[in-house]
Every structure is written in structure tokens, then in C-alpha cells.
Design a protein around this nucleic acid. Structure first.
Length: 193
DNA sequence: AGCCCTCCTG
DNA sequence: CAGGAGGGCT
């Protein structure tokens, strides 16, 4: 029913000279996924409403909407898992203060995250890239990491729902997604020069 | 009821 | 990532 790539063609479309809707995608494409991942650098908890304004070339329905929402849910899962893993690793390595925990563009954690969400850049080797992970993302990531670190240090992870408190903090740290992301061609505009 | 979230699976 | 279960909120 809501399978990922059900791109149905209206079959007898040749009789009509391309209605406006022809420009709309029936489903979500691989490029939409790449775009969504880049958007994650700005927003971890986008509302379905705002997603609709940023994917104007998508014909929304209940399935498409929940699929997009689900993507971000999956993004968050990966994000939080990395954070927890890194926090525990730091503790095992003897780190005792959050002051020692910072996210830089060359640290292991950042590389893992960038590899995951910024995959769109990978095959664009020789070209100049305009997109750069926003500084604010590094700040939010650092806050998240320290949040996990402190919670674990305090032994709060014995509570089955200990992460809820962290999620509550992080969901307030979303920033504005740049206007360019509203363009259906933003991927090309962002990756090339 | 309907939407969204997390958690767990494959 | 997609599916589905279970829970919260409106």
C-alpha cells in the first residue's frame, strides 16, 4: 500500500500536452532523500507542514507525508545512536568532564555523521561544492553529545525512558532551513557552482 | 480517529 | 531505509 517507490504512470498521458502536474513526482525520489538528509543538518524535527513547503515538487498524500516523516525519524535514530555510542566511548576512555567533549570537523563522530547525511557530495569529487555543513549543527551535536554524557555519568540510563529528557532538549534546537531548499533543483544548485 | 514519536526488526 | 507495534497527544 505505501511501498517506497510506486511510481505509477497515468498511461494515456500522451493525449494531453503536459499538464502542470507533470512536473510533480508521484513518489519520493533518491534525490529527495539526499535533500532530506542535507536538511537534517538544520532541522531534526521538521513538521509535516514545513516539509510540504520544502518539497513543493512532490504530490503529497497520507503515505508520502508519513514516508518523509519516517525518514527524519530514521535520521534521528542514527544520530542519537552515534551520540550515545560516542559518549559511552568517551567515558570508557576516562573522560570525566564535558569540557573535554567537543565536536570538530575532523573528529570521528563528525565524520560518521557527515558520511551518513552528506552522502550527496561523495560522487561529486572534482567539482567545487557550495554546500557546507552549518556551524550550528556542530553546536547542536556537541550539546547532544554532552547531554548523553552527563545523563550516563549520572546513572540516569537505568531508567528505560532516560533518553526522553534528551530528546526534549534537542527538539528545541532546530534552526531555519535556508530558502534555497525550497527549490526543486536545490540539490544541483547546492552541489555545483 | 488521526497524527507523530520511539523502539525493534529485517 | 521500511514495516509494524505500542504509546502519547489532540
Amino acid at each position: 500500500m505505501c511501498t517506497g517507490h510506486a511510481h505509477k504512470q497515468p498511461s494515456q498521458a500522451k493525449r494531453f500536452p503536459l499538464p502542470i502536474q507533470s512536473y510533480m513526482q508521484e513518489g519520493l525520489s533518491p534525490n529527495h532523500l539526499k535533500k532530506a538528509k542535507l536538511m537534517f543538518f538544520y532541522t531534526r524535527y521538521p513538521s509535516s507542514n514545513m516539509l510540504k513547503t520544502y518539497f513543493s515538487d512532490v504530490k503529497f498524500n497520507r503515505c508520502i507525508t508519513s514516508q518523509l516523516i519516517k525518514w527524519f525519524s530514521n535520521f534521528r535514530e542514527f544520530y542519537y545512536i552515534q551520540m550515545e555510542k560516542y559518549a559511552r566511548q568517551a567515558i570508557n576512555d576516562g573522560v570525566t568532564s564535558t569540557e573535554e567533549l567537543s565536536i570538530t570537523r575532523d573528529c570521528e563522530l563528525y565524520r560518521a555523521l557527515n558520511m551518513h547525511y552528506n552522502k550527496a557530495n561523495d560522487f561529486e569529487v572534482g567539482t567545487r561544492l557550495r554546500f557546507c555543513v552549518p556551524e550550528r549543527f556542530l553546536e547542536v551535536a556537541q550539546i547532544t553529545l554532552r547531554e548523553f554524557f552527563n545523563a550516563i555519568i549520572a546513572g540516569k540510563d537505568v531508567d528505560p525512558s532516560w533518553k526522553k529528557a534528551i530528546y526534549k532538549v534537542i527538539c528545541k534546537l532546530d534552526s531555519e532551513v535556508p530558502e534555497i531548499f525550497k527549490s526543486p533543483n536545490c540539490l544541483q544548485e547546492l552541489l555545483h557552482e
